[in-house]
Simulated scan of single mutants.
Amino acid sequence: MNDFERRKAKYQPVAQILRDVYGELTWHPGQSAMDELVSCILSQNTNDTNRDKAFAALKARYPDWQAVVDAPTDDLIETIRSAGLANQKAPRIQRALERIYRERGEYNIDFLNELPLDEARDWLISIDGVGPKTAAIVLCFAFNRPAFPVDTHVHRVGKRIGFLPENISAEKAHPFMEAIVPPEDHYAFHIYLIRHGRDTCRARNPMCARCPLKNYCDDYQSTINP
């Protein structure tokens, strides 16, 4: 068994344990793809609470995306200030919306669901301020496409368990996780790893003694139970 096969072999037992802990998860349509995209831009370098507060403020202040584009940038900055880095995010959102309208003639990116996955991902990443994580979130959450988002929790937990090599960047981890996790499980397993990262495998003071994954965790086996 080579190194990648060893990492991939962890998936089924780990997924089953997390499924037992957190319950079955099934994708359901949520936000529109446009909402997901803007929400993701707001989420960069902040937490979910601040993102949600800023997104709610944006939706309450502006009746549609054209109004966001037409708004003075300073006004948009104040509206989304709770998300942090508003001076960067406001013009980034406006430029993204302008690009979408210029290319599509409407504020709608549902056409991405009809494209091959790699083409859809490349189109999203070509938007200024959209990286692999944002693209994967839009594709996975809005369309249930087999894209695997890697955020800080997934990156940390993935490395500790041993799905990911220790020195891999979050950006390069996306295709790695997509190769390990079956396409139909991308949404659920992404959520499982986030929940596990928040509840147990925390960045500081991880609760290894109570972790249900310790028998499969490279970090636990090598540092705590060598």
Score class of each variant (00 low, 15 high):
residue 176 F to K: 13
residue 183 P to R: 02
residue 64 D to K: 08
residue 107 Y to W: 15
residue 108 N to H: 10
residue 172 K to S: 13
residue 135 A to Y: 00
residue 171 E to Q: 13
residue 132 P to C: 02
residue 84 G to D: 04
residue 155 H to R: 04
residue 127 I to Y: 00
residue 90 A to F: 03
residue 56 A to T: 13
residue 116 P to V: 12
residue 157 V to K: 03
residue 160 R to W: 14
residue 110 D to M: 07
residue 163 F to K: 04
residue 108 N to C: 12
residue 119 E to G: 07
residue 85 L to G: 05
residue 152 T to V: 13
residue 131 G to V: 11
residue 76 L to K: 06
residue 114 E to D: 15
residue 86 A to S: 14
residue 148 F to N: 00
residue 161 I to A: 04
residue 141 F to S: 04
residue 105 G to K: 11
residue 160 R to I: 07
residue 51 R to F: 04
residue 49 T to A: 15
residue 124 L to R: 01
residue 175 P to N: 08
residue 110 D to V: 06
residue 162 G to E: 04
residue 146 P to M: 05
residue 126 S to K: 14
residue 53 K to Y: 03
residue 135 A to N: 05
residue 73 T to P: 00
residue 93 I to N: 09
residue 172 K to H: 13
residue 142 A to G: 08
residue 123 W to H: 12
residue 150 V to D: 01
residue 177 M to E: 09
residue 121 R to P: 04
residue 60 A to G: 11
residue 50 N to Q: 02
residue 90 A to R: 01
residue 150 V to A: 03
residue 73 T to S: 11
residue 130 V to M: 06
residue 146 P to R: 10
residue 149 P to Q: 09
residue 146 P to S: 10
residue 108 N to V: 05
residue 174 H to Y: 05
residue 172 K to T: 08
residue 158 G to P: 02
residue 80 I to F: 07
residue 167 N to H: 13
residue 96 A to Y: 04
residue 49 T to Q: 14
residue 176 F to E: 15
residue 189 F to K: 04
residue 113 N to G: 15
residue 153 H to T: 11
residue 150 V to M: 06
